[in-house]
């Protein structure tokens, strides 16, 4: 082991969030999710199970809080006063529900990254919050410090657990990614295996990925196209345009929408005030005011 390696690469090793001197180049993967289009149908979540070898833990383990859904659909009931701490008191949910797909927000200043004792979770140059399963010792500090609680720990050895992947089921497993053994933390990766495969294939052509060439599994399946994924620094990409239209800045902790009362905008990031700088922008659900 070389100390010089440590000292020289320290600044590379950890970035708080993108700073002027080290901009993302040529990729910064990001997402936007239009909650007005999301219907809460769960297709994305199932697609994630299929793509990422997520174990089905079964009823008992689900009950114990051991589910592994990297992408979960949260269902909220609207309240009249969003700042109220009281639960919704309407007799009927006459404005419907609010669904929110929640997965790793790939924060730029990720609270999980700094605390990992072994450096198993790191920021990649293209703005992903990576998770090195082999390096993970399972201290679970990252999950403890995650504001969104989107990290999932392998409480059991699912590959050998009965009825998780019995017999023929193993043949469905995606060979592009590993099976995680017990004691390892995992989470949404923005389908990094697809990103890397895409990057490799265009590298041979001497160019960078164009918008739409890499899709995440959830994006690909989403029947209403609520999920947009792409390269935030590519001005041609839809995700870039959406962020721009909503005037959401990756490196800001307060967006236009928060500053102006009637900006007409609906883009926001969750728990922005914690300054984790998430890479996922949500667009507020719209409610018709005339009915």
């Amino acid at each position: 082991m070389s100390v010089t390696n440590l000292l020289e690469n320290w600044s590379e090793f950890r970035h708080a969030h993108p700073v002027g001197d080290v901009p993302h180049d040529p990729y910064k993967w990001a997402m936007s999710i239009d909650l007005d289009a999301c219907t809460g149908c769960n297709a994305c979540s199932v697609a994630c199970y299929a793509e990422n070898n997520l174990p089905v833990v079964g009823k008992e383990k689900y009950a114990a809080g051991h589910s592994m859904h990297w992408m979960r659909i949260e269902r909220y009931w609207p309240v009249d006063d969003t700042t109220s701490l009281e639960p919704a008191t309407r007799e009927f949910p006459d404005q419907g529900a609010q669904f929110l797909p929640m997965m790793c927000q790939q924060c730029e200043a990720a609270p999980c990254e700094t605390v990992c004792p072994v450096g198993a979770t790191n920021h990649t140059p293209d703005g992903l919050n990576s998770q090195a399963y082999n390096r993970c010792v399972g201290s679970r500090y990252c999950s403890a410090n995650c504001p969104f609680k989107v990290r999932y720990f392998n409480w059991y050895d699912y590959p050998t657990t009965e009825n998780v992947w019995p017999a023929e089921m193993t043949q469905q497993l995606n060979p592009d990614i590993t099976l995680r053994s017990k004691g390892v933390m995992e989470k949404c990766t923005f389908c990094v295996q697809r990103i890397r495969a895409g990057e490799r294939s265009v590298k041979n052509e001497g160019r960078v990925l164009k918008d739409g060439e890499v899709q995440t599994a959830c994006q690909q399946v989403c029947p209403t196209g609520a999920i947009t994924f792409g390269n935030l620094i590519d001005s041609e990409s839809k995700v870039h345009q959406q962020w721009k239209a909503q005037r959401v800045e990756l490196t800001a902790d307060e967006q236009e929408k928060d500053k102006e009362a009637d900006s007409g905008l609906r883009g926001y990031r969750i728990l922005e005030e914690l300054r984790a700088y998430p890479s996922v922008m949500y667009m507020e659900r719209v409610r018709e005011s005339a009915i």
């Binding site: 909220y76 009931w77 639960p87 609010q98 949500y282 507020e284 719209v286």
Partner: peptide, 16 residues
């Protein structure tokens, strides 16, 4: 299904 005052899943009236 309560957000306890946190801005997590938000809605906005169509006229805004």
């Amino acid at each position: 299904g309560n957000q306890h005052g946190k801005k997590i899943a938000v809605n906005i009236a169509s006229d805004q």
